[in-house]
Design a binder for these strands. Structure first.
Lengths: 141, 141
DNA sequence: TTTGTTGTAATGTCAACGGTTACATCAAAA
DNA sequence: TTTTGATGTAACCGTTGACATTACAACAAA
């Protein structure tokens, strides 16, 4: 099972908005053509990013614009904004048998390690900012 | 999106086999009653763990038994054995537009960071062995 | 040969994702 | 004020993967 592509779509959209936004009006249609998904998917993504205070989206006249500084946006912020995962990354089987010594204690034994693993992933995402990606991108353009 | 409960089911099953195996014949029915899932789910799980060389399962007479030492089994080994994730943890949107400067370079910019995040998760899982869990469990029993 | 178990195919249900259509709402230009 | 081009969102569909369950062949030991 994988983490939804909403995440990479969101990162892609933000890069487009922050890098190309000075030159073009960044409509959902334009972004959709860069990401290559349906415009409605982009609108849903932008809606989440707007709710997270990362960008602003103008209804009516159209176009998405930056709100937060790219230095202050980490991959983790984006990942959280688009809700890839609610709560725990690892699914746990429900109702282990409390009559069994293993079933009774499986959560006590396993939960902290699962949390640690998830935290390791998320900390790594926290260490990369949108500004970092923009620097890498500007070298390639 | 979450990582399938096959993983926690597998860990639970192994703990049962390694801790209770001296006292009981660990059939899929018995393990199933501890984990509280259908016995066929356990048989599939045990089948994966057997293929990974972690346990042995006797067809006919029945019962699962340890093969590898608990010290040599990490959570990562189990996670790999039951195939929670094939390849990349993060789904990437297909076919970003190569005509667009962002679309053309999004993989170059993003891939390494996604790999790093996944590696952080997996390294954390590598740092915990089944023996560690057994120690914790034996204190609680 | 009987018994209890594993291995596995087949089928069903369910949830999540992503695609798409449709349309109300809105802001700015004409 | 009307037109135009966007956004916001609800609704629905098809696909996919997970997990549950039934069924039964294969098997090993009593």
């Amino acid at each position: 099972m994988k983490i939804t592509s909403r995440f990479t779509v969101a990162v892609h959209s933000l890069l487009a908005i922050y890098v190309l936004g000075k030159e073009y009006k960044m409509t959902s249609d334009l972004i959709a053509s860069s990401v290559n998904v349906n415009p409605v998917v982009i609108r849903r993504t932008l809606s989440s990013l707007k709710a997270a205070g990362i960008i602003d989206v103008k209804a009516g006249s159209g176009g998405a614009t930056p709100v937060k500084s790219a230095d202050d946006i980490t991959l983790y912020d984006i990942y959280k904004a688009v809700d890839c995962i609610e709560g725990n990354l690892f699914n746990f089987h429900e109702n282990p048998n409390p009559e069994c010594p293993v079933g009774k204690n499986i959560h006590a034994v396993l939960d902290s390690h699962l949390k640690d693993a998830q935290a390791a992933l998320e900390n790594e995402l926290k260490s990369v900012t949108l500004a970092d990606l923009m620097k890498q991108l500007n070298i390639l353009i």
